[in-house]
Amino acid sequence: MSKPIIATTSLAGCFGCHMSLLDIDERILDLIELVEFNKSPIDDIKTFTKQCDIGIIEGGCCNSENVHVLKDFRKNCKTLVVIGECAIMGGLPAMRNNNAPISECLEEAYLNCVSVQANEEKIIPNDEELPMILDRVYPCHEIVKIDYFLPGCAPRADLIWNALVALVTGNEMDLPYEVIKFD
């Protein structure tokens, strides 16, 4: 049987979840034996070159590009696994959801914030090359169907490892108390 193929991406996340994936330490050698990586920042493959078995998503959707990439993952991966609070409920980027309209966020970031020093023309970046910022941050499952959810900020390396082993071997996942955490 050919090796299962994995793709990964970071949407509106901080790459912490990917760091946690690398935190499986020497088991990464086993992982490379078990699976093949396709589109992922880990191997720097930028576009899907074949249909994948497992897509791993870090981060929610805060702009139009995130939505595009997420839909691309849904199309190209049989099983989608979201990892981390940002992908599951928006996470820290979604702290703007409850109180601040997007205009206020942009003004704060580019005009009013104490650390803004060199924006004399008072420009808020709006080039058409730039992805559009969404009205709020969306959890991934509000955009496409998600198959599995692994919480944590970042998810414990053991949680990601156990989930991958379960998915690849088809066995039930080992879920000890210590690995389910929201921080």
Binding site: E85, G91, L92, A94, M95, N97, N98, F182, D183
Partner: peptide, 8 residues
């Protein structure tokens, strides 16, 4: 509510 546990 708004429960952002990582920042709580």
């Amino acid at each position: 509510g708004n429960h952002f546990c990582p920042a709580c």
